[in-house]
Computed example of a mutant assay.
Amino acid sequence: MNIWTYDGTFEGFLTLVFDCYDLKIFPEVIIGKNPEQMQIFNSDYEVVSDRAKAKRVWKGLHKKISGVSCEMLFRVFLSEQTDIEQVLLNYIKRAFASPSNTESDFRDEFVLKIYKVNKMVGREAERILMFVRFQKTVDDIYYASFDPKYNVLPLTISHFENRFTDQKWVIYDTRRNYGFYYDMKETQEITFSESAVNPVSGKIDEHIMAEDEKLFQTLWKTYFDATCIRERLNPRLHMQFLPKRFWKYLPEKQTG
């Protein structure tokens, strides 16, 4: 079995595609940053991420498929689904091999899979935008936590940069332990070695929470409770539009 490993980044994956064509070998198994898989399998080839190689592949893809479909490949990569690299590789192989555009050929199982996964990733990214609740810290930084199913945080950052240009903020993925910090000039990726945030609820500790934030949360919950019409409650419909896994991040849903 031909097993390849790479660093788990999109740049690393595009480098892998380049090496496949350069070496004229295509792996049967692709392993990213998955410690469990790496313990089970021995690598036959380790891909070294190379920006120049990745750019050549990306440029080549734009000649074969539309920019929208190229962006879709990136979004699907962020799904982190099992064997998604193999699905992407097969999609790319067909795109490069075909003399005509293949991106809308839904008879192909890989094209269909790409579209389905892209839809799921897009829906998860929209939920981040819909359910974000910032908490103000004593340092005047607004903080929000999430643990999304897919690695969708990069898809939401431009929205927050455009919407909240006049304040400092942090959006953090507690499942993958990384996030983005905006200082009103630029956005940078960050990682917390130690955090004053409850990993379960996403709530910041009392000692770093701004005094007016506590008041705002109380007022918001009071408003939410006061405007709720008990006679019209529909729990099933409510959870359909507001999945329960997001409730822990919403002040209006806190009981304590």
Rank of each mutant, 00 (worst) to 15 (best):
F180L: 06
T156N: 04
Y150C: 05
E213G: 00
W169T: 03
T218H: 12
F192G: 08
I208Y: 05
F164L: 06
M209S: 07
V132E: 03
S158Y: 04
I208W: 09
T187R: 01
F160I: 01
N177W: 06
Y172I: 11
T174L: 13
K185D: 10
Y142R: 12
Y223M: 07
P199T: 03
N151A: 09
A144S: 15
T222A: 15
N177A: 08
K221E: 04
N177I: 04
T137E: 01
P148W: 00
I171G: 00
N151V: 05
K168T: 05
V197T: 12
Y143V: 15
F134T: 02
D147N: 14
I171N: 04
F224M: 09
D139L: 09
I141L: 05
W169E: 06
K136G: 03
Y178E: 06
K214A: 11
D173Q: 11
K149Y: 13
D147L: 05
L155D: 01
D139T: 12
R163Q: 11
E194M: 10
K203R: 13
I190W: 01
K136L: 14
R176F: 03
D166H: 11
K203Q: 15
F224E: 00
D205K: 09
W169Q: 04
G202A: 03
K149S: 15
I141E: 05
T187Q: 08
V170N: 03
D166C: 04
S201V: 06
K168G: 04
H207T: 13
K214Y: 03
R133P: 04
F192W: 14
Y223L: 12
F160H: 01
L215M: 08
D139G: 08
D183V: 05
N162F: 03
D166G: 02
E206T: 07
D166W: 00
T156M: 02
P148H: 02
Y172M: 06
L155R: 02
W169P: 00
Q135H: 05
R163G: 08
V152D: 03
Y181V: 00
Y223E: 10
T174Y: 10
I171D: 01
D212T: 09
P199E: 02
Y150M: 10
R133H: 12
Q217P: 00
D173L: 08
D183K: 03
V200D: 12
D140S: 13
E194S: 09
V138N: 12
L215H: 12
W220R: 06
